[in-house]
Design a protein around this nucleic acid. Structure first.
Length: 476
DNA sequence: ATGTTC
């Protein structure tokens, strides 16, 4: 079946050939049914990205792609700084380094059941969640700058977690090249008492059980077996990342004409990586990445403290921490030679294959853990990066189910209370301070995560390792 | 995503 403008290259790969202002083709990795269900805006946005200066290879969309600000969410694009390549605030997204980490507890389902209700209550009471949530960890100006430079490493040095955690975080917990001095005072003020908060929207803390190991060897390498209890934390850089995104987006829109950049869409505002503005954004964005890494690290420590009260035997070792909204400098092979590229992944996960030097020793054979968050009430997945992913989309994979309808549409279709009750009937405890938020996040408002993961696996972006089913959800 | 519209 022909889908307007798309050529099918293989079962799970679709191409929009280079035309007009496009500098490279657009490539969509998805099944036929996912492509059919995608908003045409995704294809339009992928083509717009393909027209940006210095783009290398192609503009990619992952199987969970949906309409976003400028770039599609589920979009991947790499740029060569020596060829006028650009960096785009909209290409990273507002929630800089939003991501997810998974902790294994060493507990089985039967052990959890004995105290599940109490654990849910304690987590809900302890983990600050929701719009404008704050904590008592209020940072001084100096501490803020140290946190922005040090990320999760700063958090560990300040008592939040264990040094060995850092081996299982991208960038070993600290994004180098962060420039706290170029982050505005306003961004810092917004973040001052938001460290260790979950936030709202699709962010969550979930207690899950491993229900299926598709690749037992890789699952064992990640410390996972069927019936194990794990905890996943999904959140980002809170007010700070949002403020950085807002400010630089505005500045890039204003600066673009003077930098000789013609924008097909003002939401694609960007600056050459080698320009002073590009460098300033890079320094601020990297500080935003560190903020998110530190935030997830602090939340990890808070979660450990809750478990210590309810299940003292639980261990809570970090499996891995991945970021979904980033632009990172990485070497990639293009046409047989290694080039230093800046890879935007917006709603997309890095998925390094086996043997990559960035990976911790014990994961080097299996490949990078790729954590795919489901919606509340549906499964999450752990995948592993593949060797061929490097040739697909610069070692990238999807990040979640992806929304199937707007938040507004979801609130017309569901009541929060009804969603909570239906999940409870299925044995899933969901706790949230916002019933409207629960309605917006109703499982039915998302694509079928299993189909997205299957397409990701079949497209060769990452391979399935394990499926996780929710047991407790703490929502913003 | 977001002190849910500086």
């Amino acid at each position: 079946m022909a889908i307007s403008g798309l050529e099918r290259r293989s079962e799970h790969e679709w191409v929009i050939p280079q035309t007009g202002p496009m500098r490279v083709p657009a490539v969509i990795y998805a099944s036929e049914s996912l492509v059919n269900a995608m908003d045409a805006k995704v294809f339009e946005q992928a083509c717009n990205v393909a027209s940006l200066p210095g783009i290398v290879g192609a503009s990619y969309a992952m199987p969970d792609a949906h309409w976003g600000y400028g770039f599609p969410i589920g979009g991947v694009a790499a740029f060569d700084p020596t060829a006028g390549g650009v960096i785009s605030a909209g290409g990273v997204g507002f929630d800089i380094s939003c991501g997810v980490r998974t902790l294994r507890t060493g507990m089985t389902r039967a052990q959890l059941e004995a105290g599940r209700e109490r654990l849910a209550n304690e987590l809900f009471r302890t983990i600050p969640a929701g719009v404008g949530s704050t904590t008592s960890y209020r940072l001084t100006g100096r501490e803020m700058d140290d946190m922005l430079a040090g990320g999760a490493r700063w958090a560990v040095e300040n008592g939040f977690g264990r040094p060995e955690d850092l081996l299982r975080v991208e960038e070993h917990g600290c994004m180098e090249g962060a420039e706290p001095s170029v982050v505005s005072q306003r961004a810092k003020e917004r973040q001052r008492d938001e460290m260790g908060t979950l936030g709202s929207g699709n962010h969550y803390l979930e207690v899950q059980r491993v229900v299926n190991c598709y690749d037992p060897e890789a699952a064992a390498a990640f410390g996972l077996a069927e019936d194990d209890i794990v905890v996943s934390i999904h959140c980002g850089s809170r007010g700070l990342g949002h403020q950085i995104g807002t400010e630089f987006l505005r500045e890039m829109v204003i600066a673009a004409p003077g930098l000789g950049i013609e924008l097909p869409d003002r939401e694609l505002a960007c600056a050459p990586i080698e320009s002073p503005l590009g460098q300033r954004y890079l320094g601020a964005m990297r500080a935003g990445i560190n903020c998110a890494l530190a935030n997830r690290q602090i939340l990890t420590q808070m979660t450990r403290e809750v478990f210590a009260r309810v299940f003292p035997e639980a261990q809570l070792e970090l499996v891995y921490d991945v970021s979904h909204n980033t632009c990172k400098a990485e070497p990639h092979y293009v046409d047989g030679r290694s080039r230093g590229l800046f890879v935007h992944r917006k709603g997309a996960t890095r998925a390094y294959g086996p043997g990559h030097p960035e990976l911790p020793e014990e994961y080097r054979k299996a490949g990078q853990p790729v954590i795919i968050g489901g919606s509340m009430g549906t499964a999450s997945y752990i995948l592993a990066g593949t060797q061929e992913s490097e040739q697909r989309a610069f070692s990238s994979a999807c990040h979640g189910a992806g929304r199937a309808m707007s938040r507004h549409a979801a609130t017309r279709q569901w009541q929060g209370r009804q969603v909570v009750d239906e999940l409870a009937a299925r044995g899933i405890i969901v706790k949230s301070r916002s019933l409207r938020g629960v309605a917006e996040e109703a499982p039915g408002a998302y694509k079928e995560v299993a189909g997205v993961v299957e397409a990701t696996d079949r497209a060769g972006l990452a391979r399935k390792v394990a499926r996780l089913e929710p047991m407790i959800g703490i929502k913003g």
